[in-house]
Amino acid sequence: MRPFTHLRPDTAGDAVATVAADPDAVFLAGGTNLVDHLKLGVATPGTLVDVTGLTSTAVEDLPDGGLRVGAGVRNSDLAGDPRVRRAYPALAAALLAGASGQLRNMATTGGNLLQRTRCAYFQDVTTPCNKRVPGQGCAARDGWTRYHAILGAAQDSAGLQHCVAAHPSDMAVPMLAFDAVVRLTGPDGDRAVPITEFYRLPGDDPSRDTVLRRGELITAVDLPPSPIAARSTYRKVRDRASYAFALVSVAAAVAVEDGTVTDARVAFGGVAHGPWRATRAEDVLRGAPATDDTYRAAADAELADAAPLDTDVGGNAFKVPLLRGTLTSTLRTLVEGAA
């Protein structure tokens, strides 16, 4: 582990200025992913700029009926917030499905959005990884891909660096389904980025997970008012019953009238470089009868472009039927529960 300086600026502005000016500096919040990476040598910053206490730790009501979640709000507090539990149950459920009670007490909202892939090759500096070292190659492509992407991954082709990593966040999945907005402060001022545009596909630069610019700091996440979100849920399938990352996960909200789906929000976790908004599935669902056939058709529409990996070490083709089954089961349960 490389030695580093630890700074604790007085304001978010000072923190932003420091990181913007120093390419060797990074923000430190809850530390649950960064400290892990420091030990592994995945992250080698020269300066840690501690933003603990510099962003809000409150969940505030917005005038439009939505909620503003401070970037410093711990995952456990967000999951326990009665407003979140009532109005955005899929978000509370996703938070509670993530990590462990201890880690949820440490991890922040901002940090959760920015956690990095758990690709075993990304985390092992003795194996090549385009995300860690652009141009180095991808050990995962023919390797162990059980926890890797099947949608939107960068396959080798002209100008693209191979990356099949999947984003590990549970929290981000319902936030995507509910059209959350990520509020940022940076060296050029504040801006708000819809979460639908916040995460990148690996494309030509897998080293970048999001559209954050150098020195930009997440200050809050706005959850817009969403009546449909009150009837939402989160379903996570993993290799053990708890304390494990998702193989696949589904955040879903549906409105049903007289046996017909009138509206739907669906997002997936564990299957792409970021949380994945299933707009094609939503399109199939809207106006269709609330039946298993519809749910499966919705899954198949979204999975039409899936490109699972078949490797000697352990592929991920199983994620296609798994996601189909998980979406079907989740929607069925949600609709039956509402009836």
Binding site: A120, G143, W144, R240, A241, F245, V313
Partner: peptide
């Protein structure tokens, strides 16, 4: 490849 306790799963209490 999965040489840690996040990737090498042993049963948890919930299992």
């Amino acid at each position: 490849v999965n040489h840690d306790l996040a990737n090498y799963h042993i049963a948890s209490c919930a299992d």
